[in-house]
Design a protein around this nucleic acid. Sequence first.
DNA 1: ACCGCGATGCCCT
DNA 2: GGGCATCGCGGTA
Length: 203
Amino acid sequence: MSKLSREFYNRDSLVVAKELLGKVLVHEHNGHRLAAKIVETEAYMGWEDKAAHSYGGRRTPRVEVMYGGPGYSYVYFIYGMYYCFNIVTREEGVPQAVLVRAIQPLEGQEQMALNRFQKSYSDLSRSQLLGLGNGPGKLCQALRIDRELNGEDLCGHKLYLEDGEAQAFHIISAKRVGIDYAEEAKDFLWRFYIEDNSYVSVK
DNA sequence: ACCGCGATGCCCT
DNA sequence: GGGCATCGCGGTA
């Protein structure tokens, strides 16, 4: 499998969000390779997107990494408890990103189960199996993504993305989740997911 | 099934 | 001080 290049990320978030579906997110952590297929994403379009942290050119310490160029991680802490993992897109100075909302575990499931539920993968219930990856906060727990990985170069060797196996699927477009404050932008169909994938967070 | 709510800490047009 | 790109639980059905 080949690693996704800087140029892959240097495009509009709407394009990258759709193309990220089916790709494999890898975190090399403590000698374990944690790998999962991306099954749900959301595009955040920066300047003109009222739901984006960078709306209107807002530029604070937290969102600075969104301005730094394509192919870096933007990890933020939310509700006092959870992390969300984003992939920065577009060239330096254009603050767009893609939120990864759900994954399907592929490798390192035992570690993911311990990270999420403090129990062995073989002891997980049916709903816990899905709960490994069906939400942005959950997948960060499973993959051990936290503030230390904010600003990480996704073209490096610790946290990166690979081409998945060739596969055919339909992409569903839907409203983004949890942005009721965003006025007209809350109705934009900027969430994308793989049809019929059971790990998707909201159908 | 859906609905409401509390947790908990960091950010700050 | 108000709000947040969430989650899990407990209630009602």
